[in-house]
C-alpha cells in the first residue's frame, strides 16, 4: 500500500512536469480554464472597488464643489482625451485578437497582437506624458507648486492663441518638468481664494486617478512581456490559454476605467470652453 502510494505521488509530480496543460489538482482542462477565468473576474471585482474608492471621493467633492470642478476640468484638453480614448480602445481590439489567437492555438499571432497592444498602450502613455508636461506649465500638479490663479490665466491665454509659458526667460524654473516659477502675487491671490483649494482637490483626483490608471497599464505591459515570451516558445495551446485570456480581461478593464475617466475628468467642463 505504502509503495503504491509513493508511486502515485511520483506520478502526480511527473504530470506536473510534462503536461503544464493540466495542473495536478484539476480534473479536466475545462475545470482548470473555468477556475482561472472566474479567478480573473473576481480579481477585476476587487479592482472595481479599488478604483471605486477614488470614484466615490471624486463624486463627493464634485457634488460639494460643482462649479470649481467644472472650471478645473476645462483646463484639460478634451481633444487629447478623446484621441487617447480611441487609441486605448484600439489597443483593446488588438488585445481581443490576441485572445482570439490564443483560442485558436496560434502562438506567433499571440505575440504579434500583444506587441501591437503594447505599442498602442505606449502611444496612450506618450500622449499622457505630453498632457502632464503641459499641466506642469500650468502649475496644476497638486503639490506646493499648485497655483490656480496662474492656471486659469495661462489657460485662457492659450485658448486665445497666446504662448503663455514661452514668453518667460530660462531663469524661471520650477521643479516639475522645468515649469516656470509662479510669481509671488499669484501665490497670494491663491491664498485669498478658497476656490484654489477646491480646484487643487480636482487636480489631486485627476492625477491620482489617471496615474493609478497609468500604473495599471505599466503593470499590464510587464505581464504582457512575460506572456509574449511564453507564447513565443509555444507554451499556450487551444486547451491552455488562461493567462492570455486573463491579461485580456485585465486590459479591457483598464480600458473600461478610462471610458469613465474620460467624461468625468475631461468632458465635465468642456462646454465652458466651447465658445472660443
Amino acid at each position: 500500500m505504502q509503495v503504491t502510494e509513493k508511486k502515485h505521488a511520483q506520478e502526480a509530480h511527473d504530470d506536473h512536469g510534462h503536461g503544464h496543460e493540466l495542473a495536478h489538482h484539476f480534473v479536466s482542462v475545462e475545470q482548470q480554464h473555468d477556475a482561472g477565468n472566474l479567478g480573473m473576474w473576481m480579481f477585476l471585482t476587487t479592482e472595481v472597488l479599488f478604483f471605486g474608492g477614488l470614484f466615490a471621493a471624486y463624486t463627493i467633492y464634485r457634488y460639494k464643489f460643482e462649479k470649481v470642478f467644472e472650471q478645473a476640468s476645462n483646463i484639460l484638453d478634451p481633444m487629447l482625451g478623446a484621441i487617447n480614448t480611441i487609441v486605448l480602445i484600439f489597443s483593446s481590439v488588438t488585445m481581443a485578437f490576441a485572445v482570439r489567437s490564443a483560442q485558436q492555438g496560434k502562438s506567433k499571432a499571440i505575440v504579434a497582437w500583444l506587441g501591437a497592444t503594447i505599442v498602442f498602450g505606449g502611444l496612450f502613455l506618450g500622449i499622457k506624458y505630453f498632457e502632464w508636461k503641459h499641466d506642469a506649465q500650468l502649475h496644476v500638479f497638486p503639490t506646493s507648486d499648485f497655483n490656480w490663479t496662474w492656471a486659469r490665466e495661462k489657460h485662457s491665454e492659450g485658448e486665445h492663441g497666446g504662448h503663455g509659458h514661452d514668453s518667460h526667460g530660462p531663469e524661471l524654473k520650477g521643479y516639475i518638468f522645468n515649469s516656470p516659477v509662479v510669481p509671488a502675487n499669484y501665490v497670494e491671490s491663491d491664498a485669498r481664494n478658497p476656490e484654489a483649494k477646491q480646484a487643487k482637490l480636482f487636480f489631486f483626483l485627476y492625477f491620482s486617478m489617471t496615474s493609478l490608471h497609468a500604473l495599471h497599464m505599466v503593470i499590464g505591459f510587464g505581464v504582457m512581456a512575460v506572456i509574449m515570451a511564453y507564447a513565443w516558445n509555444g507554451y499556450y495551446t487551444a486547451n491552455y490559454y488562461v493567462p492570455v485570456e486573463s491579461i485580456g480581461l485585465y486590459w479591457h478593464f483598464v480600458d473600461l476605467v478610462w471610458i469613465f475617466l474620460f467624461p468625468l475628468l475631461y468632458l465635465l467642463g468642456a462646454h465652458l470652453g466651447a465658445g472660443h
Binding site: P78, M79, A82, T85, F262, P263, A270
Partner: peptide, 13 residues
C-alpha cells in the same frame, strides 16, 4: 460613441 460624447459635451446641456 467617443466622438458623440465629445460633441455633446461641448454643447451646454
Amino acid at each position: 460613441l467617443t466622438v458623440v460624447t465629445w460633441l455633446t459635451a461641448r454643447m451646454d446641456l
